[in-house]
């Protein structure tokens, strides 16, 4: 199935901003985080799927847009 993966802040370095990627059915967000070795860069801050906050255990569906951010802040 196809999933759109968006990366932000430090996670982009040496990776990509947005990519349409192919995964097996039933994959969860945590597996994508591990595949991309994101937490070697910085701990996961925020995970959104289709603009809603989700947990790493979320099971992805065809066409989902997953957005991954390290801990960021401002104000």
């Amino acid at each position: 199935m196809h999933v759109f993966v968006k990366l932000f802040a430090q996670y982009r370095e040496g990776r990509f901003k947005t990519e349409e990627r192919t995964y097996k059915e039933g994959i969860c967000a945590q597996e994508i985080i591990e595949e991309l070795e994101l937490e070697k860069v910085s701990p996961l801050g925020v995970l959104m799927v289709n603009s809603r906050h989700e947990k790493p255990s979320y099971t992805l569906q065809e066409g989902d847009i997953i957005a991954l951010f390290p801990k960021v802040g401002g104000g």
Partner: peptide
């Protein structure tokens, strides 16, 4: 990670 890493690297505009 926010005050020590994120804010220095990207400023508040990371938002």
């Amino acid at each position: 990670p926010i005050s020590g890493e994120g804010l220095p690297a990207f400023g508040t505009n990371v938002l």
